[in-house]
């Protein structure tokens, strides 16, 4: 099963307890939190210094950080500023927790991006309620940000996500000299399907094909590129393997039986490209163009087939 949204959110919600990192220079506070939060569905971590706290934040990616303002080696405002400046830690919810704070401190903390501010000595029940409320809000925000990247009809990743993900995988492959393949595919004569059988049936075809595309290998990223065109990013995959994947998807669609239209055969054309199809200094969109070009070659070659993009650089041979 290819990586899907449901998998991702379930992993977040079920497999692991939310992590809470307390950055406070008093070990008494750590003990207090450990005892009072032991029955909450939380995984607790603690740091006594700003330096250690920042390191753990990056390493553990906690959902929530309880941050003291007065730290021995720095102060909480500085720590928060650093957390917000780092893309890895930016989305962590930070709750300030400080003794005898002035309103000006609370305003400063919230304006720097903290989600809440608790004054010491704190009522532990209130603290846990505020942590729970922060986690709820965060889960809702994450769900929204995932939903904004999902195609409504097919449930696949949308074009926006595709662009971002391809950029990331492209950079990753270049950096570590790994292979990267891309499949572009387009349903054959989709317009006449729509015209002949109605748009609701066209939607059924799109949904069914999307289902086939999303049932590939776990690491493949299936996206709706637009209209009846789809793209699959295949990290660490040679063009030969990508060709095999495309061939299997082609066969599965062609073998589909359609309700009330026993005679109907729906097919798609596939274009496959990898990094050898683009120049050394090419941008990610060159990979899309190469796969697209191969896909159009498949169309011109009679449809319902897979074509491989032209090679501009010697291909890395798969080691046997």
């Amino acid at each position: 099963m290819a990586e899907s949204i449901a998998d991702q959110t379930n992993q977040l919600q079920e497999e692991r307890r939310p992590r809470l990192l307390a950055i406070d220079d008093s070990d008494l506070i750590h003990k207090l939190l450990r005892i009072r939060l032991q029955h909450e569905r939380l995984e607790l971590h603690a740091a006594l210094t700003a330096k250690e706290g920042l390191r753990l934040a990056k390493e553990l990616q906690p959902e929530v950080i309880l941050l003291d303002i007065e730290l021995g080696d720095s102060d909480g405002f500085q720590v928060l500023t650093e957390l917000k400046a780092d893309p890895d830690t930016r989305s962590i919810s930070v709750i300030f927790i400080s003794a005898f704070s002035e309103p000006v401190d609370r305003v400063r903390g919230l304006d720097l991006g903290a989600v809440d501010f608790i004054t010491k000595p704190f009522e532990v029940n209130e603290l846990t309620a505020r942590v729970r409320s922060t986690l709820r809000l965060q889960a809702a925000m994450r769900m929204l940000s995932v939903k904004a990247q999902i195609d409504g009809l097919t449930g696949l990743w949308n074009r926006k996500y595709f662009d971002t993900r391809l950029d990331a995988e492209f950079a990753e492959a270049r950096r570590h000299n790994k292979s990267l393949s891309l499949i572009m595919t387009d349903i054959d004569k989709f317009k006449s399907l729509n015209d002949g059988y109605g748009h609701p049936f066209g939607d059924v075809v799109l949904e069914e094909f999307s289902h086939i595309l999303s049932c590939g290998r776990g690491s493949d990223v299936a996206c709706r590129y637009g209209g009846e065109e789809f793209a699959i990013i295949l990290p660490s995959t040679s063009i030969e393997s990508a060709h095999d994947v495309a061939e299997r998807l082609r066969e599965r669609l062609a073998a589909c039986k359609w309700p009330r239209h026993d005679e109907l055969k729906v097919t798609a054309s596939f274009g496959v490209a990898d990094l050898s199809c683009v120049g050394a200094s090419a941008q990610p969109k060159a990979l899309v163009e190469a796969a697209d070009k191969a896909m159009y070659a498949a169309k011109h070659g009679g449809r319902n087939r897979v074509e491989i993009g032209e090679c501009v650089e010697p291909r890395l041979r798969k080691s046997a």
Binding site: S26, L28, I29, L32, E70, A99, F100, K120, P121
Partner: peptide, 9 residues
């Protein structure tokens, strides 16, 4: 300092 923040809790 450590006592200040924690004792109340």
């Amino acid at each position: 300092h450590q006592l200040k923040g924690a004792a109340g809790g």
